[in-house]
Design a binder for these strands. Structure first.
Lengths: 348, 348
DNA sequence: GACAGTTTTGGTAACGTTTGCAATAATCTG
DNA sequence: CAGATTATTGCAAACGTTACCAAAACTGTC
C-alpha cells in the first residue's frame, strides 16, 4: 500500500531527487539521457507525483474552485461544463462544489476552497450574501463572480462576469410589448440575489416606459426551481386571469409554471404567453418549446476563465473588471402575438 | 498577500505549533484555557489551516473523487448531487470531475485524483474501458464503480453499485408486453458501456420468452444524449413503421427521439409508445410525461458512499461487493395499452 | 516536602515535493 | 593544456502541517 515517491525513483535511477524533479517538470538544465532514464524508471514503477506536496512546495495548485448554486439546474450544469472546458484548456483542473443555495454552506465551501489553496475561486450565481465573501478574500485569492453581480452602488468592488440582467429585463418587456401584450405579470423572488432584482427592475422600467401594467408575483424563497415555479403558478392562477403574458425569472420557474398551467387547463400560449430566462436545453424540447432570453453559457464561461487567468498571473492588482453579456431572445412556441382585437389598453 | 500560518498563531499566542495544532483538532490533552486563547488568536487573524499541508502530513485528505460522464445529463447531475450530500454527511468533500465520455480524459482524471491523494474514487457510469483503471488502482486507493459494472465473467473484481440493468431491460419488455405490444424496437448503442449491453440483453431475453419481436437500432457512438436520440430516431423513423413501441436506453435518448417524432408527425403514444430509462426530472414535465424505468438516485448514492466509507476505514481488504438496485416503472403518458383489435401477432 | 502520577506542553522529525545555491563535469578558447 | 564558460548534478532548506516522544508543570499522598 506504500506509494512510490520521488525518493524511490531517485534511488532506483541512481540520481538525486532534484534530478528526478527536474526530469518530471522537464526543466531545461537536465541531460536528455538522464531524463529518459529517470522517466523510464517512473513508468516502470507506476510513479505518480504527489500533487499535495507539489502544491505545498511550489505554492500553486493549478486548481480552480467553482461554486454553483444548484447542479441539478441544467443552466448551471451547462455553465459548469463550459467553465471546466475553458479551465482545462488553460491547464487548470476544476474543483466543483454545489452550495445548494445555502448561504452557510457557501461560506463553508469558500473556506474549504481557500484552505485547499486553489489558485482562484469562481462564484457562480451567488446570492447577495456571498458578496461579503468576495470582499473578505480580496488580496488573498483571486475571485471572480459569475452570473450575478453586486449593484453599482455597492461598496464592494469585485471582478464580475454576468449576463446583463437589467437589459434582459428590459428586452423581455419590449418583446412582450412588440407582441401586443399590455397587461403582464412578473414571476420571481423577493429576496436573494441581485439577479432577480435586476431582471425585475429592467422589466418594470421598460414596461413603464411602454405603458404596460405589471403585476409582480414573487416567492419569499430565493430559488429558481421547477418547484418554485409551480408554487408561484398556483398562487397566480388561483384568481381570475387579467394578464395576457408572464415573464418568469428563469426557465426552471417557467417550466414549473407551465406544468401547473397545464394541470389547471390554462392554454399556453392561447390564453397566456410565457417567457423564460436562461436558455436551458430541456426547455427547447418539442411540446415545451419555451420562448426565452438565452444566456450564452460558453461565452460567459470563457470570459470568466479568461479574467481569472489574468488575475492569477497578473497578480490581482486591485483592479476590477465588470463584464456584461447581452442575452438574446429565442423565439419558440410559448409566446404569441395578440390579435389587434384582443389588445386591451393597459390597466394602469 | 502572505497568508497566516500555524507558526504565526503559535508566536502570537505564545505557545508552540504543536499546541496550536492540538487546539485546532481539539485534541483531548489540551488545557481548555490555552485552547480558547489559541482559537481566539486564530479568529482574530482570520487563520485558515492549509489543507494541503494537513493532508500531506496526516496522509488523508477527507476528499472523495467522483468522475461522471456528463454533467449536462440531469440524471448524472442528480446522482452527483446525492453523492455530494451523502459524502458531506460523512465529513468528506467531493472533487467532482466530468469525463465528457472521453476515455483518455477519464484516465487523466483518474490519475489526477489519485495524484491529488483523494481518500477514495467513485467512477460513475464509466465505459468498459474504465474498468482497467479500477484494476490498476487495486490496493492503491479505494475505488467504487457506480451505475455500470463489469460483466460477471470479467476477470476484474471491483466494488460496484448499480441499478440492475439486466432486470430493468426485462422489466421494460414485460411492461410493454403487458400493454399488448408485440413488435417493438430497442434504441441504444453498440459500443461503450456494459449498461447498454445489459439493458439490451435483458430486454431481448424477456422479449424472446414472451414471444415479442425486437428490432435493435443502435448508434456506434457510446453516448446517451438528446442529440444521439434524435439521430437514432431519424434512422428508425425513415422507413415504414411496423413497431408499436420503442424502448430507449436512457431518458435523454427517449427525449431526442420524441423531439424528432414530433417533427416528423409521428404521434406519441397514439402511433408509437416510448419507454425511457433513468427517471430524470425534466422528463416528468407536462406534455412530455415520459414513461420510464426510474433509477433511485438517492439510494444509489447512499449505497455507493456507504460502501466507500467502509473501504476507507476498513482498509480495502481485497473483498468485493456488488450491489444491484432494481428500477421501478414510472407510468406516465408516453406508453399506451393497445386495443385488442390492434394487437398483431409477432413478426417472428 | 519528596515521590509518583497525571496533565499539559514543546521539540523535532516526518510527509513529498520544489528551488536556490554550490559543486562538479563537460566543453570551449586561445 | 590552463583557464574560462557552460551544462549538469546534488545538497539542503523551505512549504505548513501532524505525530511521536520527552520534558515540564501541576496534583495528590504519605
Amino acid at each position: 500500500m506504500q506509494r512510490v515517491t520521488i525518493k524511490d525513483i531517485a534511488r532506483l535511477a541512481g540520481v538525486s531527487v532534484t534530478t528526478v524533479s527536474r526530469a518530471l517538470n522537464d526543466a531545461p538544465e537536465i541531460h536528455s539521457e538522464t531524463r529518459d532514464k529517470v522517466l523510464r524508471v517512473c513508468r516502470e514503477q507506476g510513479y505518480r507525483a504527489n500533487l499535495l506536496a507539489r502544491s505545498l512546495s511550489s505554492s500553486h495548485s493549478n486548481l480552480l474552485g467553482l461554486v454553483v448554486p444548484d447542479m441539478a439546474n441544467p443552466f448551471h450544469a451547462a455553465l459548469a461544463l463550459n467553465i471546466e472546458l475553458c479551465a482545462q484548456e488553460a491547464g487548470y483542473q476544476l474543483m466543483l462544489c454545489s452550495s445548494r443555495r445555502d448561504d452557510q454552506r457557501l461560506e463553508n465551501l469558500f473556506d474549504f476552497l481557500y484552505s485547499q489553496r486553489v489558485d482562484g475561486i469562481l462564484l457562480s450565481s451567488a446570492a447577495d450574501g456571498a458578496f461579503a465573501l468576495a470582499r473578505r478574500c480580496l488580496g488573498q485569492v483571486p475571485c471572480v463572480l459569475l452570473g450575478a453581480c453586486p449593484s453599482e452602488d455597492s461598496p464592494l468592488r469585485a471582478n464580475t462576469v454576468s449576463v446583463d440582467n437589467y437589459a434582459g429585463g428590459r428586452m423581455a418587456a419590449e418583446y412582450l410589448h412588440s407582441l401586443g401584450h399590455r397587461n403582464v405579470a412578473y414571476l420571481g423572488h423577493r429576496a436573494g440575489s441581485s439577479t432577480h432584482a435586476l431582471r425585475h427592475g429592467g422589466f418594470l422600467s421598460a414596461a413603464a416606459e411602454l405603458g404596460m401594467s405589471v403585476e409582480t408575483v414573487s416567492s419569499p424563497f430565493p430559488s429558481s426551481t421547477i418547484e418554485s415555479g409551480s408554487r408561484l403558478a398556483r398562487e397566480f392562477l388561483s384568481g381570475p386571469l387579467s394578464q395576457t403574458a408572464v415573464f418568469a425569472v428563469s426557465d426552471a420557474v417557467a417550466l414549473g409554471f407551465i406544468q401547473v398551467a397545464d394541470e389547471l387547463g390554462v392554454a399556453i400560449p392561447d390564453q397566456l404567453s410565457i417567457l423564460g430566462f436562461d436558455g436551458i436545453e430541456y426547455a427547447a424540447l418539442p411540446n415545451i418549446r419555451l420562448t426565452t432570453l438565452s444566456q450564452n453559457a460558453p461565452r460567459l464561461a470563457q470570459a470568466a476563465v479568461r479574467l481569472m487567468l489574468e488575475l492569477i498571473d497578473g497578480g490581482d492588482q486591485g483592479m476590477y473588471t465588470r463584464t456584461l453579456i447581452t442575452p438574446t431572445v429565442i423565439r419558440r412556441a410559448t409566446c404569441r402575438a395578440l390579435e389587434p382585437s384582443e389588445q386591451v389598453p393597459s390597466e394602469c
